[in-house]
Simulated scan of single mutants.
Amino acid sequence: MTPHSLTYILLTYNQRDTVKAAVESALAQDVQPMEIVISDDCSSDGTFAEIEAAVSGYSGPHHVILNHNPENLGLAGNLAQVHDLSTGDIIVAAAGDDLSEPQRCQRILETFVKEDPLLLCSYAKVIDPAGQPVSGNFRTALFYGDGWTVKQVARSKSLYIGATGAWHRSLYAGFGPMAPGTYEDLVLGFRAALHGRVAVINEDLVSYRLGLGITSSDAYLADVASFKTRRLNGFLAQKAVMHQREADAREFGLSEQSPVMRVLKKEQRKAELGISYYQDTSSAFVEKALRHPVLMLATVRAERRRTRKFMASHKPAE
């Protein structure tokens, strides 16, 4: 097999307080000389200055490329930018608030050589904004289970921890750039599942920071208004992801009548109802939802239950 070349991509946005450690963990990768592309998406908090300081004077084996977008492109746009700037056939993903173990890239390289996946992921140590361990089971995403079907992948909103992902360049280039509002783990994971070429490394190779940026969870939200905004944004992203998956499934060659296509269309309808629930007036929501009464009832029940659970968990102590 032809030796693989690696590109480590570090995507950053308004992560001034954590980006120095993220850059240092990239530079410290114990692997063959590789390309490191650090792309800041027009941060407004001094993140790029921290990046420049962190790489200043670096004389190690890896080749570092810095990019600062003059305007904010969003995750999908920034990802397209680093793909254009990079040359490696294996892309190792990282964010400016997470840390990679020194052996991460070497383990990824070994797995690509041994198993020839299009995408792989690993487990992660989950930490809070202060860097302290977070308790809980974070291995519930679909790819961490014993088996899955493409229909299950099409429906899933949690395939793997995105901060642990790596993929072959052809997985991105073969289907084309992702649409705005989508996330790489949910799109690239689906693409790899269509080909049946997904691998999992059963090791904690990343420290994944929960509670900052797009990794925030409900536990870190301040009030009901922020909870509702998060739910609306989640449904908007879900719609974008399902639309992208539908386009990718069509590009892959699935027919419009295939079970996977039917799943994707249903998930888009569910996302549209969720958007309407949080964005429209009650009467406008009912008017739209009556076209799909079963999905309407499921949406109302689920969102009311989520809201009650959030409010109960945020009651002030007596």
Rank of each mutant, 00 (worst) to 15 (best):
P102H: 11
R304P: 03
L10H: 01
P70S: 14
A249R: 03
I9W: 00
M178C: 07
T299N: 11
M1K: 09
P61A: 07
P33K: 02
V294E: 13
S283I: 10
N78C: 14
G253P: 11
Q132P: 02
Y13A: 03
D223G: 08
G74E: 12
V82F: 07
Q238V: 00
I108P: 00
R231F: 11
P33V: 06
D146H: 08
R308Y: 10
V224Q: 15
I90P: 10
L297C: 13
T215P: 00
L120F: 02
E272F: 04
T307R: 11
D30W: 03
A284D: 10
V198L: 12
H62Y: 04
G147M: 08
L66H: 07
V153E: 09
A21Y: 01
I38L: 05
Q106A: 10
I275S: 07
M1Q: 14
L10W: 02
E246V: 05
D204C: 07
A222P: 01
A302F: 05
L118G: 02
A166K: 00
S170D: 13
T140V: 10
T111G: 06
Y277H: 12
Y13M: 04
A284N: 09
S170I: 03
G274A: 09
A192V: 10
Y172Q: 03
K288P: 09
A22K: 02
G46E: 06
Q32P: 00
F112L: 07
H68A: 12
S255V: 13
L73R: 15
A317D: 11
G96N: 06
V241W: 00
A317C: 11
N233M: 13
P180M: 10
G136I: 05
V200S: 00
L79T: 14
D248A: 13
E35G: 05
L79I: 14
V200M: 09
L142S: 08
L264K: 05
D218C: 05
L119F: 05
S282T: 06
T182P: 04
C105G: 01
T140N: 06
P61K: 08
H168A: 04
L159A: 12
G165K: 06
D45N: 12
N69I: 02
F235R: 11
L66A: 09
G274E: 04
L109T: 02
V92C: 09
Y144G: 04
P3F: 04
M1T: 12
A124G: 05
T307V: 01
T111F: 05
S170C: 07
E115R: 13
F252K: 10
D146V: 09
Q132C: 09
V23T: 06
W167H: 15
E71H: 15
G165E: 03
H68I: 04
S5M: 04
A225V: 13
H83S: 02
E318M: 08
I51T: 06
V37F: 10
V126R: 01
P61H: 01
I36C: 11
A298W: 08
R308N: 08
A247T: 10
